[in-house]
Design a protein around this nucleic acid. Structure first.
Length: 472
DNA sequence: TGAAATGTTGGGGCG
DNA sequence: ACGCCCCAACATTTC
């Protein structure tokens, strides 16, 4: 029967525009039932990520509502939830946008096999990336391990035009039941930080589109240089939208291309940054162990501490290392759910080098705190900083957080925005950090700013010493 | 998408 | 005028 419904299974692609799977489903003219399933892949996410997911789902429910559709929420396991929905609705097709992280890949593969063997049509589509990982190959058929050749391989590739939202979408005669989003408790783990995080978050496809347009006609002009200045607010600010698929990378790519044609000097750099995201997925696809293991096994014997809760690690997590640029970065993350890229590099460098802590410890904290958490980008970034990744910075490139501050925050605007101690009239954002963090941390803006937990000179020397002594 | 130590050069003060 | 020293500015090397 050709009018049986199609389930469109949404995951990290919470949009209706430029959505291959949804467009395909809608074009069939059959009833479309959008579904989101809270399964263990999502339940494994950090507190800020889950909170941000809830915001994305709220916005997406509204967006679908304007098209006369709905979003059906169900709890996982995904396979059971889909089977149940097929049973309830008589759906004969399920489609989705492909994911590339190992747990999702394994899940999707198994589900596709089950559906197919049950006589249900299962179709997956591209959409989360510009170029799917297996479509980019080196001359010898391998995968890329260095960014620049990857960039050269893809930069002139055509990208097909974005799809607009389906002009029409029919629903089923009877909608299946949906869970209440609030009953899922995705906000639970955020605790006191949620209200503050909300002030710094704009969720949904409309906000994403507005942000992209605003960036393209504004900050993109000075992106090349100012993107490195954390106080300049010169970045695109699209990371969390991309993470949840509220905007497609293709839409970003096309905005960059059209700006480049009109001579926007920042466009090329922006296009490269969008491709960095693809490169991270390329690496994760071809070497999924990158998520948890040193990419270069030679680093396995390096004497990094793996203690998640040492006094120094706690100070790092809680933004009280006594190193202003690092503390500003960690507090920015806790309050806004994001961290400027320059600050990420410096904060990560101090953890993995001056404090000699394994990058995965920092990775897990970022996963807990970031609303734009992305497994591929973060694994690549952490391993880049730590020196054990592909195309990584050599270990001996150790950032001096003080000189980084002098270079990239010369007027101290970033540091004053995030550090309250010692100021008679602190910045409101700096104060809000103390309202966001758990009371158990025992932090107060009236307390004196902590002394550095590590001397920069001796921390650097110790890291270099360990590097020199490593077994190779 | 470093930083620090070391080396080199050249201008200026000064005897 | 010359040699000498100082030191800033820049370049190179090393980690």
């Amino acid at each position: 029967m050709t009018s049986s419904p199609i389930l469109v299974w949404f995951r990290r692609d919470l949009r209706v525009s430029d959505h291959e799977a949804l467009s395909w489903a809608a074009a069939t003219g059959r009833p479309v039932i959008p579904v989101f399933i809270l399964d263990d892949v999502f339940e494994a996410l950090g507190a800020a990520s889950q909170w941000r997911l809830a915001r994305a789902l709220e916005a997406f429910e509204r967006e679908l509502g304007t098209l006369g559709s709905r979003l059906i929420l169900r709890r996982g396991p995904a396979q059971q939830a889909l089977a149940q929905l097929i049973h309830e609705t008589g759906a004969t097709s399920v489609c989705w946008s492909r994911a590339y992280d190992p747990p999702s890949v394994a899940r999707d593969k198994e589900i596709k096999a089950h559906l197919t063997s049950d006589g249900i049509e299962a179709r997956s589509f591209a959409g989360h990336l510009l170029f799917e990982p297996w479509t980019v190959q080196t001359g010898t058929g391998g995968f890329y391990k260095v960014y620049t050749p990857f960039w050269k391989a893809v930069r002139d590739r055509g990208v097909s035009p974005s799809l607009s939202a389906p002009p029409a979408m029919t629903g089923p005669e009877v909608w299946p039941d949906s869970d209440e989003l609030t009953a899922w408790g995705l906000d639970r783990a955020m605790n006191r930080g949620a209200a503050i995080l909300a002030r710094h978050t704009r969720a949904g496809a409309t906000a994403a589109r507005d942000r992209l347009l605003q960036f393209a006609s504004g900050q993109m002009n000075s992106y090349k240089h100012k993107r490195d200045v954390p106080a300049a607010e010169a970045t695109s600010g699209l990371s969390d939208h991309l993470t949840w698929g509220e905007i497609s990378p293709r839409a970003c790519w096309q905005a960059g291309l059209s700006e480049r044609e009109t001579g926007n000097p920042g466009a090329e750099k922006f296009l490269q940054e969008v491709v960095w995201r693809d490169f991270a997925y390329h690496l994760m696809w071809h070497t999924p162990q990158m998520l948890t293991q040193n990419w270069r096994p030679g680093w396995d014997s390096f004497p990094w501490s793996r203690d998640e809760n040492s006094a120094q690690v706690l100070a790092w997590k809680q933004g009280r290392t006594g190193i202003p640029f690092v503390d500003a970065a960690m507090r920015e993350m806790y309050v806004t759910g994001r961290m400027h890229n320059r600050a990420r590099m410096v904060a990560a460098s101090v953890l993995t080098k001056h404090l000699m802590v394994h990058w995965s410890v920092g990775q897990r904290w970022f996963a807990e705190c970031l609303t734009d958490w992305d497994p591929a980008s973060n694994a690549m970034g952490w391993q880049w900083v730590a020196g054990c990744g592909p195309d990584a910075a050599p270990f001996f490139r150790i950032f001096n957080p003080q000189s980084q501050q002098e270079k990239f925050d010369p007027d101290g605007a970033y540091v004053t925005r995030w550090i309250a101690e010692g100021h008679s009239n602190p910045h409101p954002d700096a104060l809000s950090f103390f309202d966001a963090v758990p009371r158990s941390w025992g932090l107060s803006p009236e307390a004196p700013y902590p002394a550095p937990i590590v001397d920069l000179k001796t921390g650097r020397a110790r890291a270099l010493e360990a590097y020199a002594a490593r077994e190779t």
